[in-house]
Every structure is written in C-alpha cells, then in structure tokens.
Write a protein that binds this DNA or RNA. Structure first.
Lengths: 217, 217
DNA sequence: GCTTTCTGTGAAGTGGAATTCACAAGGCTG
DNA sequence: CAGCCTTGTGAATTCCACTTCACAGAAAGC
C-alpha cells in the first residue's frame, strides 16, 4: 500500500521538483497549483499527506488546512513557509499543520519530514493499541470465550478436561480453537500437556468481565 | 435444540412412566436402571439434566451426583427421594442436586421441576451476560470499531461524513457495517439522517477503551 | 429544468473461518 | 499384549461474514 501525497504550490518549478523527489522515492504523488483544486480532488482520492505552500494566490495554506482537516482529520499536513521565522512556524502549527519546512530546503529535509509524518500517521491509525485486534478476533467466538473462562475459573486443565467441560462432542473442534488461542498468545501449553492462561490471556478475561459489567446495566 | 434428559431409576415401571411423561413434552430421554451405566453413557452424550433416584442397588444417587458433577459441572440434577422429609431434601441438595421431588409425585410436579431446572441452566449458560454476544461480534470487525470510534469522537454524523472520515471508497461497504451496528442497537439513526451512538453503543466504546488500556501494558 | 451527490437496497460472488472426517502416535490399564 | 483413552495433525468440506456490483429514489446544487 503505497502512500498517496498531494503537493499544492503555485510555483510550477518548485511543485514539479518536489513531486519528482517524492516519486523517486516510490510515493504516489498528485500536484495542484491551488488549494481549491486540491480540495476538490480530495473528494475522489483522499491523500495520506498534503504538502502545501503557505503563500499562494487565492486560498493560502493557512485557510486551506482547517478545511481539509475538518473533512479528513487523519490527513497529515506539511506546510512550506517562505521565511524561516519562529512566528511562521508557530502560525503554521496553530492552523493545524503537523510539520513545516522552510524555503529553501534540501532534498533530504523534505524526505525526512515526509517519512516522519507518515510514520506518525501509521502509528495513530492503530489507535486502539497493538494486540487489540487479535484479542477481539479471539473473543468474537463463543467457544474460545468459553475456553478462556474455563481456564480462568478452574486453573490449568488438560485437553480432554476442557472438551468435556464445554460439553462439546467433537474434540477436534476444541483443538482448533485452542490452537487459535495459542497462536494469539492467550493460552500456553506446558510440557506436561496442561493448558493455562498466559498473563495476556488473564488480562483479556479481566477486561471481558469489566465490559460485561458495563454492558449489563 | 431439544434438551437431553437422563432418567436413572432401578424401578422399571417408574422409570418408563417418567420417560413417557417427558417424551410427551418433547424432551429427548435416555433411561438407565443404574448409576454406573448412566455415567458411562454420559461420556458419549452429555445430558442437560439428570433425574436420579436416591435409593438404588449399587451406587445410589448420593454417590452418583458428585461423580457426574465433577466431570460436567453444568449438568442439572433432580433427585427423587423416597420419603418427603426435610433431612432427605437437605442431604440431596448437599450432595449436589439442584432440585428434588418426593415420591409419590404427580405428573405436573415433575414437569415443573424439569422446566425450572432447564431454565436455570439456560440462564447460567449465558454467563457473560446478555448483549455481550452481539457486542463482541460487532467489535470483531475493524470497520465497525472505527465507526463507533468516529461517532464517539465527533458526535452525530451523516452517512457520507462517516464514509469519508474512514477513507473508504465504497460507500456500500460502510452501509453494510452501519446496518449491522443498527441491528445490534449500538447505533441509531435519527429522522434527519444523522447517525449517533445509542447509550448501549457508548458503553461499548467506554469498555473498549478500558480493555485497550488493560491489554497494552 | 437537468445533473450530481447522497443514501440506500438487494443479489451475487469471494475468501477465510469453522466444522467435520480420517487417521495415528503415545500412554495407561487390565 | 490387547485395547482403550488421550492428544493431536492435516485434508476436505461447509458455512458465513464481508465485499462487490448494479441499480434507484431523494435531495441538493447549478
């Protein structure tokens, strides 16, 4: 999944030069010479990152940013400021930019800023924390929930103990889900064939109880 | 899903008469003339409920119950006691029976006890609380989680707001998950086309945050 | 008015999850 | 040792959540 980047600048040469640098680094780039057309295009293809010049005829970067952020709060924005002053930088960040680079800038300055912004984006996308996905996908199945519950209540259990406790006739079905839980590190198996909750698994069971309380009343 | 009931009694006539009453009420019944064979059979087909006579040659009901409960704690047991005395009743409950009926008993007494026990069973099986199942099945999907999160952060949103916010190109996909959330009562739609979290949905989001914290560290 | 965007339905297809089936290597027990 | 129970594996199949596609009325913009 290659990242899509918008470059918005009224200066044709600068715009093309930025686009070329980015394309050489295997980003997918779309260029616009004013904010209005960039906004319109964003309705068709939402970018991951927008690089926008502060000073432009018509809508400037400062006006453009809030409009874009309102529609797509997840889009990262790097502003290009004409002169490197503290005031400029502060104003840029205040209007919602995530980073800025001052003209004139070097190739590497640009790339560093771009990479950092995209990294932040990737990080934020997770949002709900690592491990959450696997956890919830395990919990979406009744049998797996029952296994976790049983292990939590009864402590370590052997394979057939679990199977009978759940009153499931086909032991291979239990095996399937048990393997799944092992893969996701919620259940571990000791050398003596006993299954037990991992610390992670215990946390999940606790959390489940919390959720359950919260919902039921 | 018809319930499976074991009838364990050495008295052939009584056994058959109980079995007939239950079968006429659309329960699935297996009869045994002693505790040993019932135990053995339980390894093949685990019953939901066992009706067992206290006084039998060989293993009596009092000895039988702990053995069965140990293997299958979820099985409900109704004991038949010969004489209706407080002592008998207390002893029966102590050994693990869930209910008892005193000989002689009427058809309806039996049925009431059976129905009550099975109701209790159904109740206990839920364990994790009503609403939990739907909740978790919703949460198992990333898009649905994102929708809940978006609504939680931004308040009411319209259909296309959500679609664009999630940066999903196919709006029908969003629609699908939104409908799912509506069906499960986590999201409601107002007359003015705005979607919003239901109280239930808000609880889920809160709970999710808790879970997330718990897991991540 | 016409066109585009919004909001949605329903059918058909796809892929992965879950189930079932066939089989088998230890281990324990009589 | 013969025979069961335990604890698996892997392939075949079924099932279902999700996606995609084709279409369409309502609302909004020009």
């Amino acid at each position: 999944m290659s990242e899509h980047i918008y470059v918005v600048d009224d200066d044709h040469d600068l715009r093309e030069s930025i686009a070329e640098i980015l394309e050489n680094n295997h980003y997918q780039v779309s260029s616009f010479e004013n904010a209005e057309s960039a906004l319109q295009a964003s309705k068709l293809v939402v970018p991951s990152l927008v690089i926008v010049d502060n000073m432009m005829p018509g809508m400037g970067g400062m006006a453009f940013i809030p409009l874009l952020k309102k529609e797509y709060p997840n889009v990262k924005i790097i502003m290009i400021t004409a002169f490197s002053t503290v005031d400029n930088a502060v104003a840029a960040m205040k209007s919602g930019a995530d980073d800025y680079i001052a003209k004139p800038f070097k190739r590497d300055e640009l790339l560093v800023a771009v990479r950092r912004s995209l990294e932040e984006l990737k990080f934020e996308k997770q949002m709900i924390g690592p491990g959450m996905d696997e956890a919830l996908s395990c919990l979406s199945n009744q049998i797996r929930r029952d296994i976790l519950l049983a292990l939590s209540q009864k402590g370590d259990m052997r394979f057939m103990d679990i199977t009978r406790h759940l009153e499931i006739s086909d032991h291979t079905k239990v095996n399937f889900h048990l393997k799944n839980l092992k893969t996701n590190n919620l259940v571990s198996q000791k050398r003596d064939k006993f299954y037990r909750l991992t610390p992670q698994g215990e946390k999940i069971v606790d959390g489940l109880a919390l959720l359950s309380n919260k919902i039921s009343h």
